[in-house]
Amino acid sequence: MVIGFLIVGSLVAVLTTIGIVFSLLFESFRFFQLVPITDFLFGMQWSPQTAIRVDQVGASGSFGAVPLLVGTLLISAVALSVAGPVGLFAAIYIGEYAAPSARSAIKPTLEVLAGIPTVVYGLFAVLVVAPFLRQTGESVGFTVSSESALAAGIVMGIMTIPLISSITDDAIAAVPNALKDGALALGATRAEAIRQVILPAALPGLVGGLLLAASRVIGETMIVVMAAGLSANLTLNPLEAVTTVTVQIVTLLTGDQEFDSAKTLAAFALGLLLFVITFALNVLALHIVKTYREQYE
């Protein structure tokens, strides 16, 4: 009886996943019949329009995903360069230096960051961070867009800090105590023990965690919908407005849609692209963790 429930439950989960993947695959296949897959993957121009009338101006849309991917990676890079160091050092301090009382105060406070809804982060990015960056930029002579990749990336990074710090915490805690004690017993300072013994031993967990954080950041939607731009812009300058894969999926599928136009089906191709990227990152993360994990035991 119980086993029956368990089987049904796991089947539902598995079948749902398979269903999602197949619906992405089928709709993407239909899209690639309208737009060649090479145009999609290597095209430099993203302008998803389709004609209502035959003789319309700008009737042929262009569906090159490169600007969206570059925008996504740019914002993710900003986010990870905020969250990575801050999360890592915060976790090291909490785990290795802080007194137990400080630890029990700081840790839950940082976890609050993980509990804030992403829409509130989006609001924060739009109303506080972006205007601040623009004014600061203007006062030192830079032109900063109101929807700069920097603003969205920083706020996304803040959101990711607790994820990185809890992963770091786990990875460090998993290092055998004997290693640390041995280093300290040989006269290493705490910093030396951490840098030369604990971090190398925890490295697989750290890298795996960073990749998980990356796939989370790449798939994040609400913050970029609110704070990043809408028009595709192929640039590596974080002060300019860029758009992301997730933002385009939202704009393509908001409202009433016709499901035989390339414009709508493009959203599924983008979804598939996103899925492939995050899936690859997750597999890579698991592989790294698995391969190098038990080195010291």
């Binding site: 160091p85 801050v86 999360g87 890592l88 050092f89 915060a90 090291i92 301090y93 909490i94 290795e96 230096y97 700081i106 406070t109 940082l110 960051l113 803040i158 800090i161 710090s165 705490r190 910093a191 951490i194 840098r195």
Partner: peptide, 13 residues
């Protein structure tokens, strides 16, 4: 190293 950790916690807070 210790101050760097403390500073990063302050940044997050």
């Amino acid at each position: 190293f210790r101050l760097a950790g403390l500073a990063d916690i302050c940044v997050a807070l």
